[in-house]
């Protein structure tokens, strides 16, 4: 079972759009409190499954076809921190908005950390195969609507309580779906850059025509 025991603060600050601000003790204090709350509240759960790509209906658009070039199979995965985190964020919005935004961004980081660990499991379970990095519906031209197909294949609503709504928003909200290609031949490492970043569509740097250098 994957556990969450530390949250990447630098990444959380990046999610807040505050990369480059010099750390100070006030902010450290807020981060400490929020991290503690998240670790006490999150109930990380995940699922993954290897699927054959041919006729799977999963290759929609150029981005994913490009990403999974030369892959016959892929692993689809999902992860969530559970519904209690949403409640924690809601409550913090009433009692302490500053904490609420930090809990929000730290939780987004935390669920990615869970995904990183799931990815490690997948790599370990496929020692003879080469893997792509994980790609999520909503990246590039890969339709976000496919999230519901991912969840159905994984039986996620029943097994871990992860659903989407009519607008393809994952609920609980601190959740991720993704796909990792499996190939028998080495994979040309495509540029990760902004395309694979969760913030690609929301990034303040990109809106200003720059990038964060990550």
């Amino acid at each position: 079972m994957i556990a969450l025991n530390k949250i990447d603060r630098e990444e959380a600050v990046r999610y807040l759009g505050n990369s480059g601000v010099e750390m100070n003790s006030t902010m450290e204090g807020i981060l400490d409190i929020c991290e503690e709350k998240i670790l006490a509240t999150a109930k990380p759960k995940y699922l993954y499954k290897t699927v054959a790509l041919e006729n799977s209906g999963l290759l929609v658009g150029n981005s994913i076809s490009n990403h999974l070039e030369n892959c016959q199979n892929a692993v689809i995965l999902c992860a969530t921190l559970g519904a209690d985190i949403d409640k924690l964020i809601r409550t913090a919005q009433i009692t302490d908005m500053a904490q609420a935004v930090v809990i929000d961004s730290m939780s987004s980081v935390a669920v990615e950390q869970i995904c990183n660990k799931v990815e490690e499991l997948i790599i370990a379970e496929n020692p003879t195969l080469f893997t792509t990095w994980r790609f999520s519906p909503g990246y590039g031209d890969y339709p976000i609507e496919l999230q519901s197909d991912f969840l159905r294949i994984l039986d996620a609503p029943r097994k871990i309580g992860l659903c989407t709504n009519n607008n393809s928003i994952l609920t609980p909200t601190k959740s991720v779906t993704a796909i990792i290609g499996l190939s028998e031949t080495p994979i040309e490492q495509k540029r990760r850059g902004c395309q694979s970043c969760n913030l690609a569509k929301t990034c303040k740097f990109r809106k200003a025509g720059n990038h964060c250098g990550f």
Partner: peptide, 14 residues
């Protein structure tokens, strides 16, 4: 000016 973080701005507002 990038001297403080967003949560600090909010904290002051609170």
């Amino acid at each position: 000016k990038g001297k403080i973080f967003l949560p600090q701005l909010i904290q002051s507002a609170n």
